[in-house]
Design a protein around this nucleic acid. Structure first.
Length: 295
DNA sequence: ACATAGACCTGTTGGC
DNA sequence: TGCCAACAGGTCTATG
């Protein structure tokens, strides 16, 4: 589920409940997710205030006082939800019936001026993980070394991509999935961006760079489309927050109409295009595209 | 440098 | 209805 826009939505949803709150309790329902939890995880976290929530690529960063930051990754199936205290029975929390509580692995009990809240991390497949770093040493976190620029910021440009693609024979799909090229793109949004840019996912990356090393027009368009796809998805996440947060407290899953992803056999949505969406496998992942309007 | 396959896990879906 | 294979939004490792 979580590519950059979903993680950003989770961050925005959690921030009002966690920032400025005190972690009264941290409950681990098992010893590990994808990796073991940090040694003395509770000891480092309990009794500390949450200063801020931020995000890098698909990583959620929970910054605590005393130079500590929790680095959380949601893997494929991780999600957070928020439970408020019941009015009638203080100490009890609202449990949405729709949720499968079997995979509630981590519980943050947050103390706030307006009452306690419970933040629950649920992850059926357990590909997610949580690590702990000194905030002052965050840059030394191995996964952050060599991470590409965020598609939301100014460092992603056609010139930058041209430099990265210049000698790449990799297909565009693989190059864009590489977190060292652009941080935060995943299978869905790469498919969507390439569809918007009318570029075949199988196309050799260097083919959209001119001999001079300057970006071809196609790469200029691709850059804009990556930005647009991500920005729109973050927007969609924002509206889903307003709609869903009261319903069951879940964060991260939101309705978003994709133009190609998971639409195999359906008509291409490019205006004027009469093609049909195809599915192929590239490096073990499904790729969706239209062979009529993507070249 | 690059591609592919497999690993980690459980849940959902679609075909028979 | 049941059963089973295929597949799922992410990374990491090993192997060619």
């Amino acid at each position: 589920m979580p590519e950059l826009p979903e993680v950003e939505t989770v961050r925005r949803g959690l921030a009002p409940f966690m920032e400025g709150g005190l972690v009264r309790g941290l409950t681990l329902r098992r010893g590990d997710l994808r990796f073991p939890f940090p040694a003395d995880f509770q000891k480092h976290v309990e009794g500390r205030n949450v200063l801020a929530l931020s995000r890098r690529a698909k990583y959620l960063l929970i910054n605590l006082e005393d130079d500590r930051t929790i680095i959380a990754h949601l893997g494929m199936s991780g999600s957070f939800r928020i439970e408020a205290e019941c009015d009638e029975t203080p100490g009890e929390f609202h449990h949405p019936r729709s949720k499968n509580h079997a995979h509630d692995h981590v519980i943050f009990d947050i103390e706030r001026k307006d009452g306690p809240v419970r933040i629950i991390y649920n992850d059926p497949r357990r590909f997610g993980f949580m690590h702990l770093m000194a905030t002052s040493a965050l840059d030394a976190y191995p996964a952050f070394a060599g991470l590409g620029p965020e598609p939301t910021g100014n460092f992603l440009s056609a010139d930058y991509l041209a430099a990265r693609f210049q000698s790449r024979k990799q297909p565009l799909k693989s190059a864009l999935l590489d977190q060292k090229v652009v941080a935060g793109l995943g299978n869905i949004y790469v498919c969507e961006a390439l569809h918007r840019a009318h570029l075949l996912p199988t196309r050799v990356s260097s083919s959209i760079v001119k001999a001079s090393g300057k970006p071809a027009k196609a790469l200029e368009l691709l850059t804009d489309d990556i930005r647009a796809v991500i920005a729109e998805a973050i927007e969609a996440g924002g509206s889903s927050l307003r709609d869903h947060i009261q319903a069951d407290g879940s964060l991260g899953y939101f309705q978003h109409r994709f133009r190609v992803y998971d639409r195999e056999g359906e008509p291409c949505m490019t205006p004027g295009c009469r093609g049909t969406v195809s599915r192929i496998t590239q490096s073990g992942r499904s790729t969706f595209y239209c062979s009529d309007c993507q070249k």
